[in-house]
Design a protein around this nucleic acid. Structure first.
Length: 948
RNA sequence: GGGCGAAUAGCUCAGCGGAAGAGCGUCGCCCUUACAAGGCGGUGGUCGCAGGUUCGAACCCUGCUUCGCCUACCA
């Protein structure tokens, strides 16, 4: 391909599509389970089948791909398992809403078989979407291994796990207090309930005492008056003196005609006495069937349980007929009105009510008493706790260990049955007599009574049950497969902290239980991506950044149209912000730009503030890299990689290099070290920054500029064999530096690096893709402190010259004479070697002046570079003596401040006595250096007086 | 209510015991044949507040303030 075809700006769209196809077709993402190489495995947290790739996925998956690609290039047998989760309740909410809208039917009216048929159809349609999006991001997932949590193999694993846990007594059926979602008509786990404070009321109600006078009553306070229809007692604290006389008395429960007892209770809940005599009147109504706390009390005090709310969240008998069929809200109003009419209502005051809402459906959760399937959590949790304590699994950032441990030590039994259809049906079978047989396959007869015609339990399992098995069910469990032997445990799990309990904890418990080993050695918890003002991204707020928009671009119209689709509360405000933020829409910045941005911004703090402008910064970096490569490719004519490599690896390889070449190769080693050590510690931002700094501030800003004079073709050059040889060496170093950079950057920005790498001239035969080359490691042989020191001085002198030129507003293109006043001959010899480079970089003509005394004619601007070197720019009458004095005086002042601080330190006897010797020596050296600079500055200031 | 985390340049964040840093922004100058998605130079900070430990504190300890994120059945 002709290099002239390279465009001035990098165009990601075409390039990315080409390479993703190439990688997949060549099977580079696929790992061999029989490979003898060291395994490195990650299981992708399977995204919900309902979802599409959002920025949180992009973040987590990019970090995983960086790790996977890095390890693959390091020679490990890297396997990244893709998959999709069936997301039981999320699918229900979505499909049922759709059903309601299009056919005005509930799922019950549609029937289970038809509902499932539609769910599968829908899964087939949308299940591929997210995989396609993952491919666009360049994620090197092992596609032939892709799995679905409801596929046949996963089904088998789920049944196997259920049966084993049941046989071990770790799964059981029991009637307990559960969270009922009346909208989806299913139980949900504690974790699926969001408790929010909502505006409500606190009602005080008089319960008249049986056999008492008209004024004999006990007053209770409640936020849920409708539940009084199911009250079976009033509780008072046993030691509450106000009520001692009432212990054992009965009250007439208004509206119901029932009488219930006043019971003394004395228990401690959450470290506090219950009932709390200080709260309200100190008397509490007890509704065991519809309040978890009251249920617990009823068990202790042996109170009857009266269920008055049904599965639809409506009142039912034995509530009085008047209220039967009302929703909870309707009943609340009716009960309050009736209490008031009957003279039972004492007070109504506004109150913040903590109200549980279903995370998925948004419905108010009704605590109910029901028979459900449970996992006995404690024995499983104890083993997980022990494993973490023994360091078998480590959390990064480390403080999440506490979060995990806290939850695990307070864990409650896990309700796993759901009254939904989309999911794994529970492998429990009932005979006509109601005996349970739990089995892997449909049994022919009841285990207990031998009766045939068993009916399978209607319920399905919590989605997270199959997710808990995922790290090994994807590898073929319960079979003893090569996959399992090679890739279990996973090397690391990368996921969001909000599913530590939902998922991480359950995988830990299940993995240890069934596999005898933790499922992963590390857990890396990702940050939350928020918008530029720190707000969570949400569709209703209209502040989401869609990764696909970043990759492919989106017109302003598309972005605005999407706002209307979401029907947020304030669409105009959102549109205004979008117009302001992206007046031209979102440019196509490519997957590399997004990936590199996410890595660079991922400093490990709990939030990442992301905006299109931030991503642009990294798009610019990719473009910078592209152009540096473009420049190099325009100058590789006549370059012979084999010849260069033979030379560089020969006995005198290094002597043929100039100081700039030695310097850039040395800096490259540092960059390699920085990237590798950063990635070892999951410090993605440090790794990205190290590459950015090397590419932009060292390779582009200095090396390429220093190399230019040697690369530019000229007649003179072709005729001079020495200069031609030199050009060849410079070409070789530039090619080497770029080639290494591509390998170093590849895990972060796979597309642009592959595109450039394929075009670079390379020596020995290499693999057909960059992604299967070897990741760079620093070679200490090429670390060159002398070259680094020399180029450091070159940079300082260049900057000093540029600064003086700009201060005196000299046109950058105009060459200006400068004098370099140098202290020692040794320094002079060293600078002479690169004087011509300084002249070119700063556009100056440099001569040496004797440093010992000021031999230069007055009327020069001056600046002190270091203790050894001073730059003087003779400007005659142009020099502004006053400004010059001011500038130098400022330098002196700053320098003096440091001197004072160091002298104070060294003058402190305690410091000299107690500080370590190397620290003292360091301070003494600093002081000497500063004093030398001070002398030069003072000298410069003194000579200014001589200016005209 | 309990737990965890964070407060450093205008913004976003590194630094976590011995010289206050980066990127972006801002202000100048430059279309210098890789890149204006660029180059060069400058400006900018009592490191949230108050104590303590130490020869020495942005960094360790204590308290306070303000913001995040989890978590919780206070009638």
């Amino acid at each position: 391909m002709s290099t002239s075809a390279l465009s001035k700006q990098y165009e990601p769209t075409e390039v990315e599509a080409r390479w993703i196809r190439f990688w997949i077709e060549n099977g580079f993402f696929h790992a061999d389970e029989n490979s003898p190489r060291v395994p490195y495995s990650i299981t992708l947290p399977p995204p919900n089948v309902t979802g599409s790739l959002h920025i949180g996925h992009a973040l987590g998956s990019t970090m995983q791909d960086i790790l996977i690609r890095w390890h693959r290039m390091r020679g490990d047998n890297a396997m990244w398992m893709p998959g999709i989760d069936h997301a039981s309740i999320a699918v229900h909410v979505l499909l049922e809403k759709d059903l309601k809208r299009s056919e005005n039917k509930t799922r019950f009216e549609l029937g289970r078989d038809e509902f499932m048929r539609r769910a599968w159809k829908w899964k087939e349609r949308s299940g591929n979407r997210i995989s396609e999006q993952e491919k666009l991001m360049g994620f090197s997932l092992d596609w032939p291994r892709e799995r679905f949590t409801m596929d046949e193999r996963s089904n088998r694993a789920v049944r196997e796990a259920f049966v084993r846990l049941y046989e071990e007594g770790l799964i059981f059926r029991a009637k307990r207090m559960i969270n009922w979602d009346p909208a989806s008509e299913t139980v949900v786990s504690d974790l699926e309930v969001d408790t929010v404070d909502e505006n409500g009321s606190l009602w005080s109600i008089r319960y008249p005492i049986v056999g008492g006078g008209p004024d004999d009553a006990i007053v209770v306070a409640t936020t849920r008056p409708e539940t009084m229809l199911g009250d079976t007692a009033v509780a008072v604290h046993a030691k509450d003196e106000r009520y001692l006389a009432l212990h054992g008395k009965q009250i007439e429960l208004p509206l119901t005609g029932r009488t219930i007892p006043i019971v003394p209770i004395d228990i401690i809940r959450d470290g506090k006495a219950w009932p709390d005599p200080a709260f309200g009147t100190g008397a509490v109504k007890v509704t065991p069937a519809h309040d978890p706390n009251d249920y617990a009390v009823s068990q202790i005090a042996n109170l009857p349980v009266l269920e008055v709310i049904d599965r639809q969240g409506k009142l039912m008998a034995p509530a009085p007929a008047k209220y039967v069929g009302m929703t909870v809200e309707q009943a609340r109003k009716a009960v309050v009105a009736d209490l008031e009419a009957g003279g039972f209502l004492v007070e109504t005051k506004p109150y913040k009510v903590p109200r549980g809402r279903s995370q998925r459906s948004g419905a108010v959760i009704e605590p109910m008493l029901m028979e459900q399937w449970w996992v006995k959590a404690k024995p499983l949790a104890d083993k997980a706790i022990a494993a973490v304590e023994q360091g078998k699994t480590k959390f990064v950032p480390e403080h999440y260990t506490k979060t995990f441990m806290h939850w695990m030590t307070h864990i409650e039994d896990w309700c796993i049955s759901r009254q939904l259809w989309w999911g794994h049906q529970i492998p429990a079978y009932y005979c006509a007599d109601g005996h349970v047989t739990v089995a892997r396959e449909q049994p022919a007869a009841c285990k207990q009574c031998g009766k045939p015609d068993l009916r399978q339990d209607d319920d399905i399992l919590d989605t997270w049950f199959s997710s808990g098995l995922w790290p090994f069910s994807t590898l073929g469990w319960p079979d003893k497969t090569h996959d399992l032997r090679t890739f279990y445990p996973n090397s690391v799990l990368v996921t969001a902290p909000d599913i530590i309990f939902f998922w991480v904890a359950r995988m830990m418990m299940m993995g240890i239980h069934f596999m005898g080993k933790v499922p992963f050695k590390s857990v890396y918890l990702t940050s939350t991506v928020v918008d530029e003002s720190g707000a969570k991204m949400s569709k209703t707020k209209g502040n989401v950044i869609d990764p696909l928009d970043v990759v492919n671009g989106a017109t302003l119209d598309t972005l605005l149209a999407r706002v209307d689709q979401e029907k947020p509360p304030d669409p105009d405000e959102i549109k205004k912000r979008i117009k302001k933020q992206s007046p031209e829409g979102m440019p196509a910045m490519g997957a590399d730009a997004l990936r590199f941005a996410l890595a660079a911004l991922n400093t490990g703090s709990s939030r990442i503030r992301l905006s299109p402008d931030r991503i642009k910064e990294y798009r610019n970096f990719i473009n910078k890299l592209w152009n540096a490569s473009r420049f190099a490719l325009m100058n590789f004519d006549g370059y012979d990689p084999a010849r260069f490599e033979a030379q560089i690896h020969g006995p005198n390889g290094r002597t043929g290099l100039g100081v700039a070449e030695r310097w850039i190769l040395s800096r490259l080693q540092h960059a390699c070290t920085a990237v590798n050590t950063a990635l070892e510690a999951f410090r993605f931002a440090d790794a990205a920054q190290a590459i950015w700094h090397f590419v932009w501030n060292e390779l582009c800003d200095w090396y390429i500029e220093l190399a230019k004079p040697h690369l530019h073709q000229s007649e003179e050059l072709t005729e001079d064999p020495a200069r031609a040889a030199r050009r060849h060496v410079v070409q070789g170093v530039l090619a080497t530096a770029l080639e290494t950079t591509m390998r170093l950057l590849h895990p972060f920005a796979p597309f642009v690096t592959e595109e450039i790498w394929q075009k670079l001239p390379k020596g020995q035969p290499l693999p057909e893709s960059l992604m299967v080359t070897v990741f760079p490691e620093a070679d200490p042989e090429w670390i060159d402190p002398a070259a680094e020191a020399e180029i450091g001085v070159l940079q300082d002198i260049t900057s000093a010259c540029r600064m003086l030129k700009q201060t005196y507003k000299l046109p950058p293109a105009q060459s200006v004479e400068v004098e370099l006043a140098v202290r020692s001959d040794a320094t002079r010899v060293s600078i002479e070697k690169f004087k011509d480079l300084v002249e070119r970089m700063a556009k100056v003509k440099a001569t040496f002046a004797s440093g010992q005394e000021n031999t230069m004619t007055p009327g020069a601007a001056k600046t002190v570079v270091n203790a050894e070197v001073e730059v003087r720019m003779p400007l005659g009458g142009l020099v502004d003596a006053a400004a010059e004095t001011k500038r130098i005086a400022k330098d002196i002042e700053k320098n003096q401040k440091d001197i004072d601080a160091i002298e104070k330190k060294l003058g402190n006897a305690d410091f000299v006595d107690r500080a370590p010797p190397d620290v003292i020596a360091e301070q003494r050296a600093r002081l000497a250096d500063h004093q030398a600079i001070h002398a030069r500055l003072a000298e410069a200031l003194a000579t200014l007086g001589a200016a005209p």
